[in-house]
């Protein structure tokens, strides 16, 4: 194991992969691998590490895999995990984000896992909780905030689990060529991955129609292409397909779903042209026949199930570094 030292990795919150230092990212990935090792082949999948710590998932958007993954990660380390969904809480009575967060902090949450449709919401919560401080919340220790997806901004644990999957499949991330295809504009997964993979030393190419690329993509550490076939011809080590996020689209971003699938979908024919070792990733939920052919999603190239498993280990690593040690000043 490399990367981390006994001095900790200096993480207070996990809000974005942009700005995450390479040694921090590698320490998280090493710890995730250690979690997998610690749990492999044993009768009891339970560690006492976070006994007495309380983890609250606060989700203002629907989610299955991310919420379950965080909950399993917390439970496997003996944390008390509590789920709050906006529709079933005082949020529906008009409580503000700030008051909800402060209430959960005062009620004893040591960590808030936040998913919110507004970009930047977890940052705001972290800043508020840091500012009001312990005395106001009537508790000891700070409340760590993890961004579990905010609008079209970031989804850092998804990028970490993708990197963990690439490390397991390819041996390393450094020096690999990763292509991210699809709806970059609405994708917090793409943004988090672009920054994290670049930090870890990978070369990243984004492929999308011009209408599905965000303004300012020129400042990202990536190259951009509009031609999937030309990019696949360069022999990427991994291809990450993104879901077209119809729920965030108001207006015509491309002429028709069929045309999109033909130009930007990963068909069996396209997958067959990839190098033998190349991995296909999809953050899920996948829309089969749209961005990825069913046969490709079910092929041995696809690491979709491995991504989900890696997600639990990565989230265990994140909770470990945020909650297990002494508070980071």
């Amino acid at each position: 194991m490399t990367g981390a030292t006994d001095t900790g990795i200096g993480l207070r919150h996990l809000l974005s992969t942009e700005g995450l230092r390479r040694e921090q990212a590698e320490a998280l990935l090493d710890t995730a691998a250690g979690m997998e090792q610690a749990l492999t082949g044993r009768a009891v999948r339970k560690l006492p590490t976070l006994r007495g710590r309380t983890v609250v998932t606060l989700f203002y958007e629907n989610s299955t895999r991310t919420r379950v993954s965080f909950e399993v990660a917390g439970k496997w380390m003996s944390a008390d995990t509590i789920n709050v969904s906006a529709s079933a809480s005082s949020v529906s009575k008009g409580e503000s984000l700030r008051d909800t967060a402060a209430t959960l902090g005062a009620a004893g949450a040591d960590c808030l896992i936040v998913r919110h449709p507004a970009s930047g919401a977890p940052h705001r919560i972290a800043a508020w909780l840091d500012r009001v401080g312990h005395s106001h919340l009537g508790r000891e220790g700070h409340v760590a905030v993890v961004n579990a997806g905010d609008g079209t901004h970031e989804h850092p644990t998804q990028a970490l689990l993708d990197a963990a999957t690439l490390r397991a499949r390819l041996g390393q991330v450094e020096g690999t060529h990763v292509t991210i295809v699809g709806d970059i504009l609405h994708s917090r997964v793409a943004r988090s991955n672009a920054h994290l993979l670049a930090t870890l030393g990978a070369r990243v190419t984004l492929v999308a129609p011009p209408t599905l690329l965000p303004v300012g993509v020129g400042d990202w550490p990536v190259t951009v292409s509009h031609d999937l076939d030309a990019t696949l011809a360069t022999g990427p080590d991994a291809v990450m397909m993104l879901r077209v996020q119809a729920e965030r689209m108001h207006g015509g971003f491309f002429p028709s779903a069929r045309e999109y699938a033909i130009r930007f979908g990963l068909s069996q024919d396209r997958a067959d042209r990839l190098p033998d070792h190349a991995v296909v990733l999809h953050p899920g939920p996948a829309v089969r026949g749209m961005e990825i052919a069913s046969s490709v999603a079910d092929s041995s190239r696809a690491a979709i199930a491995e991504q989900v498993t890696a997600g639990v280990h990565v989230r265990m690593a994140v909770l470990y570094h945020l909650l297990a040690g002494e508070d980071v000043a």
Binding site: M1, G3, A4, T5, D6, T7, G8, I9, A27, D30, T31, G34, M35, Q37, A38, T40, G41, L47, P48, T49, M77, Y320, H321, A324, G325, E326, V328
Partner: peptide, 22 residues
């Protein structure tokens, strides 16, 4: 690796995990 079972985790910064292989 007994790290995840230690009773002094809260007293110091988080440690790196070491190998476990039975």
């Amino acid at each position: 690796d007994p790290t995840l079972y230690r009773d002094d985790l809260r007293l110091r910064p988080t440690r790196a995990l070491a190998e476990t292989e039975l």
